[in-house]
Write a protein that binds this DNA or RNA. Sequence first.
DNA 1: CCAAAGATCGTG
DNA 2: ACGATCTTTGGG
Length: 188
Amino acid sequence: MTGHEVVDHARSLLGRSFRGHGVTLRITEVEAYGGVNDPASHAFSRTARSEIMYGEPWRLYVYRSYGMHLCLNVVTGPTEQAAAVLVRSGEVLEGRELARLRRGPTVADANLARGPGNLARSLGATMDDLGTYLLDGEAVWLGPAAATAPDITAGPRVGVSKAADVPWRFWITGDPTVSAYRRSPRAP
DNA sequence: CCAAAGATCGTG
DNA sequence: ACGATCTTTGGG
């Protein structure tokens, strides 16, 4: 599988700030998806849904998961590769009350944006955010990269049935906001 | 047209 | 281990 540029992008997103609709977090967990050469990537098949990944980098790919969650991805390019990075977890830094309003009163701070569905919800994302350019300070945007590189651990991606052992999930070592690993029941 | 599979999450 | 919930996808 080619396309390890996306791995560099994934790692550099760790520690970077990510803001959505009034809530800012620090990204603690991501997964790289290689696009046309990665059987686990939605862009492995070029369809209406994955078309955004064949476009301009630094745009937001939003998709609905299991009919009830949204997941947020940063399209990283190059365009012919259609690669993207799934933002899986973060530590809420600003707008905690708003995040709690969206997630519910009983959720612990560390769990507000723990896991991709929860993260999208804490940021107040909707399908209307699909295609947002992430470097222009719009409703959803990426802040500057981390000042110092965090300590990173790698492992297999969560929930994928194809290429289930490719270690393209990256997280900040020891961070309490990182989600638990769950292997797909369909993975060989 | 229909069936099945999801880049999930909370509960038990 | 299981169910909620529904869109997208691929096969016939």
